[in-house]
Design a binder for these strands. Sequence first.
RNA 1: GCGAAAGUGGCGGAAUUGGUAGACGCACUGGAUUUAGGUUCCAGCGCCUCGCGGCGUGAGAGUUCGAGUCUCUCCUUUCGCACCA
Length: 896
Amino acid sequence: MQSNYHPASLEQQAQQHWDDSGAFAALETSDKPKYYCLSMFPYPSGKLHMGHVRNYTIGDVLSRYHRMKGYNVMQPMGWDAFGLPAENAAQAHNVPPAAWTYDNIDYMRRQLKSLGLGIDWAREVTTCTPEYYRWEQWLFTRLFEKGIIYKKTSSVNWDPVDHTVLANEQVIDGRGWRSGALVEKRDIPMYFFRITQYADELLGDLDQLDGWPEQVKTMQANWIGKSFGVRFAFPYVIDNKQDNLWVYTTRADTIMGVTFVAVAAEHPLATFAAKSNPLLAAFIEDCKHGGTAEADMATMEKKGMDTGLKVTHPLTGEQVPVWVGNYVLMGYGEGAVMAVPAHDERDFGFAKKYNLPIKQSITVQDQTFSDTAWQEWYGSKEGVCVYSGKYDGLNYDQAVDAIAADLAEKGLGEKKTQFRLRDWGISRQRYWGCPIPIIHCASCGDVPVPDDQLPVVLPEDVVPDGTGSPLAKMPQFYETTCPKCGAAARRETDTMDTFVESSWYYARYTSPGCTTGLVDERANHWLPVDQYIGGIEHAILHLLYARFFQKLMRDVGVFGEGAAAQNLTHPHSNPPLEGEGANVALCAAQNLDEPFKNLITQGMVIAPTFYREESNGKKLWINPAEVDVVNDERGRPVGATLRADGLPVIIGGTEKMSKSKNNGVDPQAIIDEYGADTARLFMMFAAPPEQSLEWSDTGVEGAFRFLKRVWKATHDHVEQGVVTAYSSGELSAAAKAMRRQLHQTIQKVDDDIGRRKTFNTAIAANMELLNALVKFNDTTPTGRAVAQETLEAIALMLNPIVPHTCQALWSGLRPGSDMLDQAYPAADQSALVQDEIELMIQINGKLRGSLTVAKTTDKAALEQLALAHEAVQKQLAGAQPKKIIVVPGRLINIVA
RNA sequence: GCGAAAGUGGCGGAAUUGGUAGACGCACUGGAUUUAGGUUCCAGCGCCUCGCGGCGUGAGAGUUCGAGUCUCUCCUUUCGCACCA
């Protein structure tokens, strides 16, 4: 072994060895149980950021750990390569998005390799290649034919200056980010996935997902938002024609408190009223300004205007005014809501503002109604009806039943289950995406592209200019003939939402190179994904869409038909895993309902910010790498200076790494300076995976220092001669204690990585073990054998986290043996036996002392020993204790 | 606005089932080694107090022999909200 720790050369050697031996090629022919470990694939934005390093290190730790535990591991990687940033870069640098994207992929692939990830690169997928999106288009045509995909109009953000559709991200304070023009809502035809048809299954199957974090499942359940309510109508007459205004409510018990109805600006009644009311028309026009984001809608000022129209309350027969409200969404529910100002916060504010009547209809026991009392009642379903005629005294359930029955009798309503979830609109008026495989024919309508004409290839030499859709300006792309009648026809020029590509890539990894379908029979070997890892920001949308796609692919028969029985008996299909998620239905992919058995949602990577204020008050953000922080004599930061000029800078908050705050740390710089293992170790040590991780330069140095300490301890030991690890024989008390700590650590680290996935505590336990070993320092033959045993175990335990270093340590400890072939160490139960234990002594729950006793001491003897304890004697001062509580193995509490 | 989390020393975090609060690391202080800086090694390090001791897990209440952990109210911060990925 080299005397010093040289990460650059040893990492290069280890990676070369893994490459040469094909160590991470995942084969379907293995006898071992399979473990499919998937990290969310990156968008090729240019270079890796710390979030990627964290994500992929977590995946690699679990992959290597499971390999050592005897699993046949598959860890793939690919590129989520379509998207908006490529178009922005294209405009900025005048390069086609394709060229920019492929260059980024080449650079980032090299970076990933330098991290030493155990990836099977033969399975790489790139979503912007025709080989990939061909199957997405194929699936689209099947779903279109089944009616799962359909067309309807929907609102988008329209920039009237650039004549282009804007993403929500491109709308800043209601204005286009480039033009600065006020954004308008515009209705255009789009294709939708009928995800609402799967809402019940997507909700119900959450119960299968034992290996998912509770909060993610709760967020998904809330997002799907199943509610039980009543859909009912307010009849009205216009131009002597009878019609109904439909609304939906979950609070039918308050129906007698309705004092007005609010409709969306786009509602037909609003449009009708505006014809004869220029002021209303202007208001409706005004409602079209501003973006479509729900957060904006919910926080903007609630505005409204009376249409002058009246509708009839279905139960009281009263005339109720119809208002237009800017907070009512046309695309959600009926586009109209009943308003009960007495018992709804939003209606209350609206009624106060426009001086509309407020009418109480429920009450809560012992409380007096007032303008503020509604606040306490809002959201609770504990009230009973009052001032509601025949419904007086009924509680929520009784009132809803009675009211729904009465509405049904009049043919004006019924109970209805509704979902908050809306259908998924996937049309994008952009260039850099998967072309939608539809041909528009004047006589045949929307015709899906036949299989033999797929893929519809996206031309790759285009530079978008930021106005309109490039494909819509390319006759050579859109001019075509109808596959049905042969007449001249126009190809669809919209592309798909990039969420579509990322909804099925996990399945494609199982079948690299497959040209006969989306996947082949290899999918049955690998699916489902055993462990999925990715950012918490994907907790709702991406994960919901991928779950949806698994069900779609299952129902379309992507995984083969009639092959289920055969695949179910496949010897290597989906063997059970220990631990979380083990009860997910084990079946071939064809019958698989859920794609991801276990899920880790990793937190963000954050870093301190530094800035200077310029004369115009603007903040100039300075990268943490250019700053020195000054601490006082107690370690508290008192200031910071810019290294370049030695002058002070202002310390800002600790925030998510971003370009705008210039607080990103380039992983490449860390790898170049300290090596990949130090970067990996720091990221795994600084916080558990689900929490946010604060970047710290000195923390990185600490991680590097630990690796040097492990290296030195191993080197110094090996220099004295490699020995056989301890297995049996007489041990000194110190050696016995050393071995006990070693085997306790093996047990703890196994649990920390395998079950708890708290890599930070696994690393801390190894640090403690090394500290103990350095102190142990026993040079007798038995002592050296125990040291050999300990050092080997440390190398094995740390191998999943810092694999390059451990590969080299192992070569030193066991010349001629390869770390790649090693199993995870098992704890020696006999070494764990302990004769004496320490018990805490409490008086009234406060710690007063401790007691070391034989493990076998019984309760009565323990009580006597505790009472005889000096501190107890002093506190009791001769009095009798009221009670003594003995918690075996832990403490004795004396209640005085 | 709605939904989901989080809050523990100067800092990141640990405390896994209600039972020793602060493991491990960083920063800091003192010492040793070193040509110097750095490195490395040893010791100290929650707060108040000379000490005895007291206080201490965002704030306030509650349950319990015992609460960082359970319950309620409040405050603050972060994430998501359907065209960023």
